[in-house]
Measured scan of single mutants.
Amino acid sequence: MSRESDVEAQQSHGSSACSQPHGSVTQSQGSSSQSQGISSSSTSTMPNSSQSSHSSSGTLSSLETVSTQELYSIPEDQEPEDQEPEEPTPAPWARLWALQDGFANLECVNDNYWFGRDKSCEYCFDEPLLKRTDKYRTYSKKHFRIFREVGPKNSYIAYIEDHSGNGTFVNTELVGKGKRRPLNNNSEIALSLSRNKVFVFFDLTVDDQSVYPKALRDEYIMSKTLGSGACGEVKLAFERKTCKKVAIKIISKRKFAIGSAREADPALNVETEIEILKKLNHPCIIKIKNFFDAEDYYIVLELMEGGELFDKVVGNKRLKEATCKLYFYQMLLAVQYLHENGIIHRDLKPENVLLSSQEEDCLIKITDFGHSKILGETSLMRTLCGTPTYLAPEVLVSVGTAGYNRAVDCWSLGVILFICLSGYPPFSEHRTQVSLKDQITSGKYNFIPEVWAEVSEKALDLVKKLLVVDPKARFTTEEALRHPWLQDEDMKRKFQDLLSEENESTALPQVL
């Protein structure tokens, strides 16, 4: 008996699950189920560990084997000379395990699969056993689809999209007709009724959600790893209520002995410091949205989908001078704002400069500016000194954290500008005749005249004003913003236009 009217009423009120309206889709043409990776026989039982391990490696599972009696060998002398080797079968990115008779397991190899009674669906509900069930008529011709799209860092995100009359449910929550939600590992998919569980979705590319604290899981769906560094790992996640993407940084307390840091400095109150950081608001710094204190720290951040500045300059790639100017102007505005709010970044580098898009002209935002507030000064500097390429001379020669101030950030900005303009770092371990530390503390950077011949004198002058060993003589952010190279009204107008595109209400910060 159909429950279409009941569920449609529920759909009209929406769902609290991570779902959002989605535009129309072009329906895929039908194809045989076997060619799409559906096993030839149905099963109602969950797999054992041996079955799972075989399939996850990209080899055929026991459900897909063919009797050897149906095959015969071709003698080598009868092999056609022009026969080309077969292409290897792509490894599946996800697996659906059937929970009921009449449904088959599915190895997801393609990027898009339609499910329903219509014969054009890649996964067609046409098993005779299924057709005899009382629920068969409640399934729509095109009930739902599972697909994946390219996300940040060229990774993939799996989604389920509801197109049914009676509802598609993920972990008992209604997706909603015309809406989608991301699928995470071990999600249970039910059709027409929330208790009519048909599939379990296994994402073969992500970790299980159960490793994360419950308070975090209640608000966010964790997904793929976006990156990792000395101070922690960053994962893509989704807000459950809105389906908006965020980035979540995970900082290990054990790695940084944060408990010991608190004992050594009783004034170090991470929760208080995070609340201060959350109040920071500038178009060129990453917004801190939320914070969870569990076995590790979880910092929920605004997501930038254009990648890191590092990706644009790695491998001796240089940027156009006009692009360097647009990016560097924004970096200076961001660091100036942090300094005005009493925050020294201490870890400025291309990896911590994020881009809003893949376009050459785009907004940038500074991230990882609050680590000293979370990890403690000593722990952070011990970590950073392991990779000193961007560290100021006074940091390398000081004991502990004494003896330096916000000028350290201006040195790091000078190193970043040098790399963007030239395509190579000013200080490098590859210069074996002088140690990296000695290069930095003496201010002897690697200047290649033929490379810098293409760079304007004004740009080079600003680099020199920032890479000054004496912090008292080094340019401040205010002085850098007043430098002739940055007195470019076309560049500032472009920045204002980019801000307006992102948010019509965002105004250009005042600069002296």
Rank of each mutant, 00 (worst) to 15 (best):
L60Q: 06
Y212Q: 00
S42T: 09
C18T: 11
S32D: 07
N269H: 09
E87W: 07
Q36H: 15
C243T: 02
D207H: 12
I38K: 08
S52T: 11
S252M: 05
T172S: 04
H54W: 08
G116F: 00
C108I: 02
D77L: 08
S140R: 01
R145Q: 13
T172P: 11
C121F: 05
C108F: 05
P266Q: 10
E149Q: 12
R3K: 07
L183Q: 00
S5W: 14
R262W: 11
E271L: 03
V150R: 07
N48G: 12
S53P: 10
G176C: 01
D6R: 02
D82T: 11
D82L: 13
R3T: 12
T242C: 06
L60I: 04
Y113D: 01
W97R: 08
R132H: 05
E8M: 07
L96Y: 02
A190V: 06
A17P: 10
S140I: 09
P75G: 15
E86W: 08
D218V: 05
Q209H: 11
K224R: 03
G37Y: 14
A190L: 00
E107P: 14
I160N: 02
S55A: 06
V198T: 07
N186C: 03
H54T: 04
P90Q: 07
Q83C: 07
A9T: 07
D111T: 08
Y156S: 06
L236C: 00
S28L: 12
S155W: 10
T172I: 07
G176M: 13
F103T: 04
G259S: 07
S73V: 12
K235A: 03
P88N: 04
H143Y: 04
S56A: 09
P85V: 11
P92V: 03
T138Y: 13
R145M: 12
E76I: 06
R180P: 01
E219A: 09
L60S: 03
S40W: 12
Q78P: 06
R3M: 07
R181V: 03
P47T: 07
E263V: 14
K119G: 08
L96P: 00
Q78N: 14
D203P: 00
G229L: 02
D111Q: 04
A264P: 15
Y220K: 03
F256R: 09
R3V: 10
T43G: 04
E271K: 12
T26P: 14
K255S: 04
V25S: 10
Q36F: 09
Y113H: 10
R132P: 05
N269G: 10
Y72T: 10
P128H: 07
G151M: 00
V25Q: 13
K235T: 08
A98Y: 11
L96Q: 00
S228C: 05
N48Y: 09
N166C: 02
N171F: 05
E271Y: 10
S12H: 05
E70S: 08
